[in-house]
Design a protein around this nucleic acid. Sequence first.
DNA 1: GCGCGCGATGTCAGTGACTGTCATCCACTA
DNA 2: TAGTGGATGACAGTCACTGACATCGCGCGC
Lengths: 191, 191
Amino acid sequence: MGRWEPNARGRLEQAALELYAERGFENTTVAEIAARAGLTERTFFRHCADKREILFAGAGRLTELVVGAVAAAPPSASPIDVMAAALEEVGTMFEDRYDFARQRHAVIEASAELRERELIKMASLAAALAAAFRRRGVPATAAALTAEAGVAVFRIAFERWVAGSGEPDLAHLLRESMAELKAVTSGRSGP
Amino acid sequence: MGRWEPNARGRLEQAALELYAERGFENTTVAEIAARAGLTERTFFRHCADKREILFAGAGRLTELVVGAVAAAPPSASPIDVMAAALEEVGTMFEDRYDFARQRHAVIEASAELRERELIKMASLAAALAAAFRRRGVPATAAALTAEAGVAVFRIAFERWVAGSGEPDLAHLLRESMAELKAVTSGRSGP
DNA sequence: GCGCGCGATGTCAGTGACTGTCATCCACTA
DNA sequence: TAGTGGATGACAGTCACTGACATCGCGCGC
């Protein structure tokens, strides 16, 4: 792989995921990732803010998708219904990505530092969602709570998805988890 | 401050909070914190896993408190009511700590790295809560969702508390936010 | 075809977080 | 008083990350 091969960023992402999976995040140096991608350490940091960020390139797209869905929902819909509709789109976004999602999730779960980064991505997703709700006229606290609840539903459904094998699809688990949240918060759930 | 003064850990926590507040987390070196506490950098790392962790000594106590409250609730109570009761205790825990909580929160909000750490503490709190609910016989998904919802309520109420000045007390904001969550998830909230 | 500008890359030196190792110090006890 | 143990200091080393400057190759106008 010569100095000027195209798609340096993509090669770095691929190399990082491979190495993190092979020997763990902590036991991988940035120099090794860069070497596998045919680049130098310095170039890694030109493409990527830090060693963790390389795994989170897709976070931006997820945010765009849900925020767009919230903005596009009919003005009369209640926040929780809008949230549910947005999660529907998320379900389809991951449709063909089971293997990738699963490997990436395993890598992240294996490292406390990567879990931290994942959490801040989820938090920033929640913040973007809350802002989208406020733009629809939802009061701040309700907007924040709806967003947080939506993200919690997403996370829990996602975990169940990658924990299983083949399993019902993500969209189905998302609907189930949302229903469960409604049941739980309304007190319709045994001790 | 000589080499063998007592309470090295406490001096380090104090020095770190001061320096992070004075010049920001990123512009403070561990050597400076240690020097202000009358210790060396090496000793800092003997008391504290890393530069962030020094601000999160109290996280363990918060977890113990809520988990204990969940365990102590009457067996017949519904998960969401148990969660609400646990949050009551949290409200009293912070009663006399407004100034400290506010300064610490400001320091954390000012740094992305510290926000990451805060998030993982909240996540581990949610995990401990979910486990406590499961020990009460609550099914896994409902337990996780109740825990996540409870932590979301805590965070949002806490933010409103430190954002204000003097304000209603935390316990009051916790009750309000919990009510709002119930309203939102039941669809009783305008667009 | 030719020089030229510009963006992507390489090189190198430096800072600071964190760790392993070993020496040193003080408090407590026999 | 000697000895033991836990806390600390001193020092060297690794690695994430950054700034400064040199270098490369592609596309541009001519």
